[in-house]
Design a protein around this nucleic acid. Structure first.
Length: 425
RNA sequence: GUGGGUGUAGCUCAGCUGGUGGCAGCACCUGGUUGUGGCCCAGGAGGUCGUGGGUUCAAGUCCCAUCACUCACCCCA
């Protein structure tokens, strides 16, 4: 048995890579319109960075991280998400000193040791976006609007759900109210909820069990327990979205899996991806920078989009585009012609033309076939007749029309003239 | 970690109650066309039937195990 890729690790093949490139291009373009800068951060970090930011008790930290002992004995981890690394870099290089507000994005692979399924891999890719240095609700609305615009420009249809998780002033109170409520539940809860009641009470709210949901109808809502400041903030975020005509749904049951979220959280969801409904999600994390020993009271908000999930959506929501053909295929017969073709092809390429040829000396028929397979717009035919006549044949592969063009011994200028002609058409 | 489904050519798949692996489609190569692609026709190449056991005169087919892939739970982008 030949060696195969690891479970949950996938090759992105040439046939699908153009979709990836398109997503990244549109994302970069939009982010730059919003004054974001790209930052590239390492894939490996000290384990402590993630356990401290994501939360010791989360599934990610407890059982999903690729954690190794380095040769010097220290514990290192392949990043399971992007925010922690970006914040580490932000703090380490004191980026807040350059500008009071930093807008950053990064694109790259993340790693989580989970069982793979549709839209979920062990190595997956995220577009990760962060805004540091402001807690204004308009910033939340602007960031969400940017995520929305990205999906719109990719022509994807998703829905937006938002919620507020409160702040250290009001969340504990709600948490207690929820725990009290769960203790008062009379009917049986599902096994998962029994467990969640202990580990993460918030999570019971998005349980899929119908019986549980029936009982939770009477559950306290986070929205009713927000402190005045959080209530105002959440209202202002919604007003901002309304001003920009972004359709959203307020969902007080929506919960996030990472501990660091405060106040605004949001998800961009679809029902077209099986069990994986979120193509993007994020939220505010006002205490996180301080928690990582950065400047105190440095607020932040961010989101991540799963590129694999975007690719899946694009494949089913839009028609696949034809692969682009090359400009010209140079057909040659005989060694003298092959030498000439070799030089012409290289000169054409230097001039910006997508040109290729057959190096194996195959039959003309075979070479024409290759040209067709490569979707070449033109073929240039060089055989013995053409060489003796000093007239090469240029064939338009769509119309099948052929024209003779006089060939001079000045290969470079001749090729450049041909290149100019091809690039003009 | 827990369940279900599926493993036959590079890809998509036939293969019935066990009886010689499919003129199957796509792709590939050669020829029909001594120098002209797509369409057509003819031919060719390509396989440890996921792997290992078992039952049987005989296993792609039945049984057991194992591995891989996949979907779902959990959780998440």
């Amino acid at each position: 048995m030949s060696i195969k890729a690891l479970k949950g690790f996938k090759d992105i093949l040439p046939t699908e890579v153009h979709t990836w490139q398109r997503i990244e291009k549109v994302a970069r373009d939009i982010f730059h319109r919003f004054e974001f800068s790209e930052i590239k951060v390492p894939i490996l970090e000290k384990t402590k960075l993630f356990s401290r930011s994501i939360g010791e008790a989360t599934d990610i930290v407890e059982k999903e991280m690729y954690t190794f002992t380095d040769r010097n004995g220290s514990s290192i981890t392949m990043r399971p998400e992007g925010t922690a690394s970006v914040l580490r870099a932000f703090i380490e290089h004191s980026l807040h000193a350059l500008q009071p507000i930093q807008k950053l994005y990064t694109i790259g692979p993340m790693f989580r040791h989970e069982r793979p399924q549709k839209g979920r891999l062990r190595q997956f890719h995220q577009i990760s976006v962060e805004v540091l240095g402001t807690d204004l609700p308009r910033q939340d609305a602007e960031l969400i609007a940017m995520a929305w615009l990205l999906l719109t420009e990719l022509r994807l249809t998703v829905s937006l759900e938002i919620n507020s998780l409160g702040c250290p002033a009001c969340r504990p109170e709600f948490n207690q109210a929820l725990i009290d409520f769960l203790a008062s539940c009379e009917g049986p809860l599902c096994e998962d909820c029994q467990r969640r009641r202990q580990t993460n009470p918030l999570r019971v709210l998005d349980c899929k069990d119908e019986n549980c949901q029936e009982q939770y109808k009477a559950a306290p809502s986070i929205i009713d327990h927000l402190c005045p400041a959080c209530t105002d903030h959440f209202q202002a975020v919604q007003d901002g979205l309304t001003l920009l005509e972004i359709p959203y749904k307020s969902n007080s049951r929506m919960v996030r899996g990472l501990d660091y979220y405060t106040r605004t959280t949001f998800e961009l969801v679809t029902d077209a991806l099986g069990a994986q409904s979120a193509v993007g999600a994020g939220g505010r994390y006002d205490g996180l920078v301080g928690q990582l020993d950065g400047p105190k009271d440095m607020p932040g908000i961010g989101f991540a989009m799963g590129i694999e999930r975007l690719v899946l959506l694009l494949e089913q929501q839009t028609e696949t585009s034809e692969p682009q053909g090359i400009d010209i295929f140079v057909v040659s017969l005989g060694t003298a012609a092959a030498d000439l073709a070799f030089k012409i092809v290289h000169t054409l390429r230097k001039s910006g033309v997508q040109a290729t040829m057959d190096l194996a000396g195959r039959s003309m028929k075979n070479q024409m076939k290759q040209a067709g397979r490569n979707n070449a717009r033109y073929t240039l035919i060089i055989g013995e007749d053409e060489l003796t006549k000093g007239q090469l044949v240029l064939r338009d592969m769509q119309t099948r029309e052929q024209e003779e063009i006089a060939f001079t011994d000045e290969i470079t200028p001749w090729s450049k003239a041909l290149a100019a002609k091809l690039l003009n058409k």
